[in-house]
Simulated scan of single mutants.
Amino acid sequence: MIRHTVAFSLIHEPGSSGEREFLDAAVETLTAIPVVQDFRVSRQISPKSPLAFQFEMTFDGVEAFTSYNNHLAHVGFVESRWTKEVSDFQEFDFEPYGLEER
């Protein structure tokens, strides 16, 4: 299992129609990709981080994660929306850490 997360801020004003349209488009586009599981959008509430939102999703493994990254819907969303509307981000991709790996 891989947990893919990306924390980000948008160029849009908080609470604006631009912000809502971006987030709605992300949910519609990314959840339609068959390998995406447990998609979640969260809003940052801590003043300790300048990043306002987080997308989180899981994949069954590396093959599914690679499929997502290469999927035309994901690539299209990144090219048409993400690169134009995201002002800053950090991406984190994790797999479970088990006792056998210590």
Rank of each mutant, 00 (worst) to 15 (best):
H12Q: 12
S80V: 02
V75R: 11
S67G: 10
P47H: 04
V6M: 09
A32W: 06
L51T: 00
E63A: 14
V27Q: 12
F77Q: 01
V35K: 00
D88S: 13
T31S: 13
F22V: 07
P96T: 03
S46T: 09
R43D: 01
R40E: 15
A26I: 07
F22A: 07
E56T: 15
T31I: 10
L72Q: 05
S87R: 11
M57E: 14
S17R: 08
I2K: 13
D88V: 07
A32T: 06
F8W: 09
H12V: 06
L30T: 04
A64T: 08
E19A: 02
P96R: 04
E21S: 10
F59Y: 11
H12A: 14
F92S: 12
N70D: 13
H71M: 06
G76M: 03
E28K: 12
V41W: 08
R102M: 11
T31M: 14
E101W: 11
R102S: 12
V35E: 14
A7H: 15
V78Q: 03
A25H: 01
A25R: 05
P14G: 01
P47A: 06
V6Y: 06
A26N: 04
V62E: 12
E85I: 01
S42Y: 12
F92Y: 15
E101N: 13
E13T: 13
P34E: 02
S16C: 06
E13S: 13
I11K: 10
E56K: 06
D93I: 09
F39I: 02
T66E: 15
E13K: 14
K84A: 09
K48R: 15
E100P: 01
I45D: 06
R43H: 10
F77L: 03
S46E: 04
G15H: 00
E101D: 13
I11R: 12
V27N: 04
E28N: 11
I33E: 05
H74K: 06
G76Q: 00
D60S: 08
P47M: 04
I2P: 00
Y68V: 10
H4D: 10
Q90V: 15
F77I: 06
F55S: 03
F89G: 04
D24R: 07
V27T: 13
V35Y: 05
V6Q: 01
S80M: 05
V36W: 09
E19F: 00
F77W: 00
